[in-house]
């Protein structure tokens, strides 16, 4: 059902929601950019419409709300262990259609990959409502249309920001609240239909692609900083850290912490072995996971075409170009 709210009405609506929900949205964090004098656009708690950044893409994705970067799984002493108290409040996330699809990829890995759902992820995921921000222009690096992630119907509320009002399409759960603050108005969500960049994903990967010279370019261009992993809304890898408290090493905790396949140490094994020591090999591994083997296993490509990896790469490596090159050489082989 459609609603129109003035800015003030929308803020009152948000204030009402804040009683029951933690509300996260893209926000400008002043002075928190890596370079001095720059801001960071990232997910953070918001209280009003004015705080929500609509005209920029976030540097980091909303994945960190569902999957904390560093999460304690349990505490242990000599004879016992216990999980931390989960006191997660319900959460509303403002996000774009591509990021909704990205959360579906997280779901695939953490909820539907084998018999056992991940209880820590499920605990948070069940409490999340999507408020989808209409996105009809996109940004320079986006290729959601090619990845089929430009549209979504999975939202609690869909919003379009206009000069002095917000138009919403709400699922029944939120219609009473919106009706209380705004007035009914017809509204049909719109989606982006064309990006500046389009990609062609490979249908079949010939074994020769594995050793193709295309990857060796990244041996020297890539610095293995892992920004592409950290900023990716669909990278799901983590590592385990067992901490023994310094004051009393008989107690400690087990954490799980994000890991990235581009970063040194990702493949370290007992005995000092590791794989994919060349950065080009890591790039190949990542690319094939994002646009080949994930689909083979689960039916959709992992990559949702948000383009964040392009935006954040300090070496100006474009992942959409990698996808297109991969498709080219796959066709050739």
């Amino acid at each position: 059902m459609g609603f129109a709210l003035t800015t003030e009405q929308f803020d009152a609506f948000l204030a009402g929601l804040a009683r029951d929900y933690d509300i996260y949205a893209p926000k400008r964090l002043a002075g928190k950019g890596a370079f001095s004098g720059t801001d960071l656009i990232a997910y953070a708690p918001v209280q009003s419409l004015a705080e929500i950044v609509f005209d920029r893409k976030t540097f980091y994705s909303p994945k960190e709300i569902l999957l904390p970067i560093s999460q304690t799984l349990f505490y242990f002493t000599e004879e016992a262990y216990r999980e931390p108290q989960q006191q997660q409040r319900p959460v509303i996330i403002f996000l774009r259609p591509c990021d909704v699809h990205a959360v579906k990829r997280l779901d695939q890995i953490y909820l539907h990959n084998g018999d056992q759902a991940d209880p820590y992820y499920r605990e948070r995921r069940e409490k999340v409502k999507f408020f989808v921000m209409e996105c009809t222009e996109g940004f320079d690096s986006c290729f959601c249309v090619s990845m089929g992630t430009n549209r979504t119907g999975e939202y609690a509320v869909f919003l379009r920001l206009e000069a002095d009002r917000v138009l919403c399409d709400a699922r029944p759960e939120f219609t009473p609240a919106l009706a209380a603050y705004g007035r009914e108005a017809p509204f049909t969500p719109a989606f982006i239909e064309q990006n500046k960049i389009s990609v062609k994903t490979p249908e079949k990967i010939a074994p020769a692609v594995y050793g193709h010279p295309l990857w060796s370019e990244y041996d020297s261009r890539c610095i293995a900083c892992g920004r592409c992993n950290v900023c990716c809304p669909t990278c799901t890898c983590f590592t385990m850290q067992d901490i023994f408290y310094e004051d009393n090493p008989r107690c400690g905790e087990r954490r799980r912490v994000w890991a990235g396949c581009m970063i040194d140490g990702f493949t370290d094994l007992a005995g000092g072995h590791s794989f994919r020591n060349k950065y080009g090999e890591r790039m190949r591994f990542k690319a094939l996971h994002k646009v080949y083997d994930f689909k083979k296993r689960f039916g959709d490509h992992m990559c949702v075409g948000c383009g964040r990896c392009d935006d954040v790469c300090p070496e100006y490596i474009s992942f959409s170009r990698i996808i297109n090159r991969l498709a080219e050489v796959s066709d050739d082989e």
Binding site: G31, A34, F35, Y60, G226, W258
Partner: peptide
Amino acid sequence: GECVLKCPAAAWTR
């Protein structure tokens, strides 16, 4: 400020 520049996750900020 090098640590801030090198951090991929904004664990270090200014």
